[in-house]
Amino acid sequence: MGAGAVLAHSVARGGGYQELRRMAPLQRWGTSREVAEVVTFLLSDAASFVTGAAIPADGGATCASGQAVPLVVDCGTR
């Protein structure tokens, strides 16, 4: 699981928050609760078939940066 920018109280009080927020694809930073919800899902039975995946919880930052690439997995043959 890859967490993106998460809002901390010290950042929210600082003057640069609004500028950084505008650079984020969703126009806001994530919260620790939102990241925890992704982790909770991955640890649950609902994700029992999810294996070998990198799940970005970054509000779209990975896609907006051009870092998102199609996943190609070669697991060999049996």
Rank of each mutant, 00 (worst) to 15 (best):
V11C: 05
V35Y: 07
A53C: 10
A12G: 01
D45Y: 04
M23R: 15
R33D: 06
Q27A: 09
V35L: 13
V50N: 08
A36W: 02
F41E: 05
A46T: 11
W29E: 00
G30L: 02
I55E: 09
V35W: 06
L43N: 08
Q18G: 14
P25R: 06
W29S: 04
S65V: 11
V50G: 10
L26T: 02
R28E: 07
V50I: 15
S10L: 02
A24Q: 15
S48D: 15
C63Y: 11
G30T: 02
D45V: 00
T62E: 14
E19G: 03
L7W: 01
T31L: 01
T51A: 14
L20A: 14
G52K: 04
R22T: 13
E19W: 12
D58T: 01
A64T: 08
T51V: 12
S48K: 13
V50R: 05
R28I: 02
R13T: 10
P56L: 03
D58K: 01
R28A: 08
D58H: 09
A47T: 09
S48E: 03
R28V: 00
A46D: 10
C63M: 15
F41R: 04
G52A: 14
G16T: 15
G30I: 00
H9M: 00
T62C: 15
A8I: 03
L20T: 11
V11A: 04
A57D: 04
R28M: 06
V39M: 11
E19Q: 15
R13A: 11
G16L: 14
A47F: 02
V11S: 00
T31P: 04
R28L: 01
G60P: 06
R33P: 00
S48R: 14
G30F: 01
V39N: 08
A46E: 12
P56R: 00
Q27I: 03
V35S: 11
E19C: 01
L43W: 05
G30W: 00
R13Y: 07
M23Y: 14
A57I: 10
L43P: 06
T31V: 02
A54H: 05
A57C: 15
L42W: 05
G30R: 02
A61N: 12
E37H: 08
S10N: 01
L20G: 09
S44D: 03
Q27E: 07
F41K: 04
A36R: 11
A47S: 12
S48N: 12
S48M: 06
D58F: 02
A54C: 11
S32T: 09
G15I: 13
G16Q: 14
T31A: 02
A54K: 11
A61V: 13
A53N: 07
E34V: 07
L43T: 08
V11W: 04
A64W: 09
V39T: 13
A47D: 07
Y17C: 06
D45Q: 05
A36L: 13
